[in-house]
Design a protein around this nucleic acid. Structure first.
Lengths: 201, 201
DNA sequence: TCTGTTTTGTTGCTTAAGCAACACGGGAGC
DNA sequence: GCTCCCGTGTTGCTTAAGCAACAAAACAGA
């Protein structure tokens, strides 16, 4: 989205990272709705006007922040710049699950608005990644439909799993199932629509 | 020396602190003589030209850095903005001793040049502080001579004490004497020339 | 000694950040 | 209704930081 980080004026890199850092620290303290642009710029020790030279408003900041964090998660597992395999698909699902869990534990009180903004960003990233993977295969099959299905399914699973710790009140506290078992079970349901893209394997 | 930190352009505060921080980190790695301005600006991620807008050269940076650190030590013990008493004098001596010990443990290899630059700065600060203390008493006695004597004596003691851990080779490793005992012993020799300024006590 | 390399200060011009002030809108409380 | 307050975007002008290029000095090694 924004020009690729490096080859960028050092001042820009610095203030962006100051904004990002302050914002993420604030998210750990209070809900997204209650965070004002002033809060962010105060903590970052930059001028409020400077903020608006980088972001439209706090919503765009949230989008950017979530994207960056998720992208880091993906790069950490070197899932960017690789291709479609069952193992990589599995890693992707695990990544989304762990990302959401971390997000929920790091952020003070996620409201539905916050959740839905996050969802939009993450799904876009998953979709892009899957598209890159599927396009690398020489097949001329259209990727839109399978990628869409897989994207929604993956996010849905991860969301379900990441929320399944505090069970509904009254009932016995149902522990979140172990991630690996959960993914083992779910993986085939996702892979079935993508197998036509499986390459050499 | 420099305008008092606050009420200052945020950009200036930021780059100064970046420079300071990088410099102190570098001092922990290599000797002062081997640190170049480029090293500092690289680590601080600022432009080299910007450095020269704040400091003449690395020597002025060292002066400033040492002053800041020592001033922090003084303010931590609230020795600024107080007056002359035996207790405060004792605290001052302890402060200088502990400061030098910390400096020696934090810095990679102190050369004699480094040491002498440090000495100049610290003594200037001690002298200024003592002068403020002594001037607060209503006496019209001149402060220059007593303050000078006390300054040199205090620094000399602290330097001696802070270097007395690794004893000369061959001899039994003489442990650095406990600071409080050392100061107890030395304090009267310093105080004797300042007692005429003692106030109500 | 000559030579290439590195570091040092310095300069003019470009660009980003700071600042103060403004109009706007949405509550909160009377 | 009415203020008062607070957060939001936006603007023109000021100031600091970035950059590339330069000459001069320091230095290391044939």
């Amino acid at each position: 989205m924004l020009p690729n980080e490096s080859n960028l004026d050092p001042r820009v890199r610095r203030t962006r990272s100051l904004i990002l850092q302050s914002f993420e620290e604030l998210l750990a303290e209070k809900s997204f709705v209650s965070i004002s642009v002033q809060d962010v710029t105060d903590k970052a020790q930059i001028n409020r006007a400077t903020f608006y030279k980088h972001f439209e408003d706090k919503y765009e900041l949230l989008d950017y922040s979530i994207s960056q964090m998720f992208r880091a998660e993906i790069e950490k597992r070197t899932l960017d710049a690789c291709h479609y395999t069952l193992d990589n698909l599995r890693s992707l699902i695990v990544a989304v699950c762990e990302f959401l869990v971390r997000l929920h534990s790091d952020c003070a009180q996620p409201h539905q608005q916050f959740e839905s903004l996050v969802e939009t960003q993450i799904k876009a990233q998953i979709y892009d990644l899957l598209t890159v993977w599927l396009r690398q295969t020489k097949t001329r099959i259209s990727t839109e439909i399978p990628a869409t299905v897989a994207t929604w399914a993956i996010y849905g699973l991860a969301s379900y799993w990441s929320h399944s710790t505090p069970a509904r009140a009254g009932a016995a506290r149902e522990k979140r199932p172990a991630l690996s078992k959960f993914v083992d079970e779910a993986l085939p349901l996702i892979a079935v629509n993508l197998e036509q893209f499986a390459g050499s394997k």
